[in-house]
Nucleic acid binder design. Structure first.
Lengths: 208, 208, 208, 208
DNA sequence: AATGAATGAGAATTCATTCAT
DNA sequence: AATGAATGAATTCTCATTCAT
């Protein structure tokens, strides 16, 4: 929640709380109806604020989503730092995937609106671009993990694999509502797909 | 271009041509700016038609997309029937994937707007639902191919695998613009992912 | 159905039939939804004609209503000439009212759309004006009957009484759908109102 | 001006004033051109407001008329309560009619647009229905007066007589623009019609 | 003549954003 | 700061009327 998308940095707790309320409301509504159908007055109403107050903090509608994305990025950074333990380097790939996928799926479950913005469905092109930044950051972090495990890996390839990995994760998130795939199956299959794809690429060979 | 989404069945050649023009224009614009930012007057202008002509045949904006989706579904059915040859059953999985993936990627390249609707990005929730129908149809066809190759395969599993397969294909389509992944790499990696995932599931074992 | 509202005088029976169909359709639809909600395409569809054919006979929407009104005026003139028998002059007022009111109410029942135009409800101001001409003609005929019965009656008063009479008749027509007033009661009360109002004014005194 | 037809209850004085302005403008324009030809932007312009302000308070065009009708109903209730004095019960019918008709005619004179909605001319079917509710309320009040004067009167009959009475009043209001009938004559004749009709029905017989 | 496609001005309504209180 | 009223460009859709076939 850096200040970049804010019109004014709040000085008091009251303002900070307002901003959080607004972002929460925005997340909810975007999750429900998509970005385009989300109106600023709807957000204000859900946040129990006047529309004027909303514009006291955010210069325009897009900035609200930017703010939301910043918050998600911060959350994902937290997630990453929690996951990133020294043993990661030597963990067998299946375990590594558990350590990465599980918290991500849990996070998605808990955050209304996250999926819409992260997966990018129902967002406008402008939002899509902002979303891409978030995705890229995560992809770079994935690549970092790969490289740390396999220092010999070409960085370009690392980024390529991680981008694909993330894209597949997003695809499965998008499948979350499908009647064909109960949630546990979804997670299992996702791990299977990734494991089989990545094992030859970034798996630790015995003896290494 | 079946009549279901049309307000009126065109009686004259002019009308049929107009409808095609309008769908073409709609596809282009949706591909450029997404569904929500697509305006009926934009479509009309791009189709070199008066806005009234558009509404002669389509009852509303959504119906245009429905019409577009119907056209894509028909195209995909054509694609399927071309791919579906008797030797499909005994083909090695890599060859099978070539036969399926390549024409699909080619089709996507040629159709402005197809990606937006097929992948579902930038579409509104209402469109997303209509898109789902198209996706499901393709998924069922994939499942049919799997089942023909492996009659012993549980139909539920067949549908599950095909749904996941399709979802991954869509994810890669969504990656098409990424600077990290040139198009040939994209296709290669897609086939790799699918091959490794599907080989243990629907690969033909030697001697079968 | 003088030619005044027609673009072209039909030369063949086919054209005459078309015109009748169109007027019938217009009457029906105006009766159902009112003048403003009546569209020319609705009329054409109901008349099983193409919209272009409709405009071959009528220069615009209003002309259709004009044509309809002309037809009604002719019908009402017929009605009048049937009612106008020599004995009218010496008939007791109650009988006279029966002779006038009953056929009028019957006519109204049989003609979808007549009420809307005659009573003037649901019509636009332009139509209202055209309607007024029809109403005035009927009022003048009523006045004529009054004057014939009572040659001493001031013509101004005769027109005044007949205008009021007609206005009351229209009011009761407008009440026709009311749940409080079954049709027979409606007719009875209408006659009561008119009888009590007119008896002192145009009743024939014994000995006259 | 009850809140029922409003989208939002105004919180500030400005809003309340705006609503009144809009209703005034709507009444004027409806009176001039009828409901269907009345345009929301015409109303806004006449009310010296932006079209958006109109929609801040009224969800759609029809609601404006509903609001207008509510205001008229309130005005008519006021009128009724002013007329309703204890001596009403014993007043001779001519005096009673004076007491009822005169203020009503005065009110009509002062309210542009009232006639269009009350008499129901130039209104669309939807509006006609809303108008009916207002009319029915007034009719029930008339019936109440009848019943109070003549407790023995069957309530069904009371309502019937009052409905007819009101319908006749409306007919005369509709005649108000007629060149044949100057206003004073109109009022006199209206009272004559009603007096002769009602005297036998609800007149107080001597000795009662 | 008949058909139905083409036209475009105009209507209702929304909504991001600004402004007054 | 907070509230909610004000604004108006933009959007979807209609429909009387004209035109091409």
């Amino acid at each position: 929640m850096s200040s970049s998308s804010l019109r004014r940095v709040p000085q008091q707790g009251r303002g900070t709380r307002r901003i959080a309320q607004i972002l929460d409301a925005a997340a909810e509504i975007i999750g429900e109806v998509g970005y385009d159908a989300t109106t600023t007055s709807l957000i204000a109403a859900r946040a129990h604020t006047a529309i004027g107050s909303l514009y006291q903090f955010f210069p325009n509608k897009e900035a609200i989503v930017q703010g939301l994305l910043e918050r998600y990025r911060a959350d994902l950074r937290d997630l990453h730092s929690k996951v990133l333990t020294p043993d990661l380097l030597t963990l067998p790939l299946p375990t590594l995937l558990d350590r990465i996928i599980d918290p991500l799926m849990d996070f998605e479950m808990g955050q209304r609106g996250f999926k819409a913005l992260f997966v990018g469905v129902h967002a406008s092109p402008e939002i899509a671009q902002a979303t891409r930044a978030m995705t890229d950051e995560v992809a770079r972090r994935f690549a970092g993990i790969f490289t740390e495990r396999l220092p010999a890996l070409d960085p370009t390839l690392a980024l390529r694999y991680s981008t694909i990995t993330l894209s597949i994760v997003k695809a499965f998130l998008g499948l979350a509502a499908s009647p064909v795939l109960p949630r546990e199956v979804l997670v299992t299959e996702l791990k299977t797909v990734l494991l089989r794809y990545l094992e030859p690429l970034v798996g630790l060979r015995a003896g290494e």
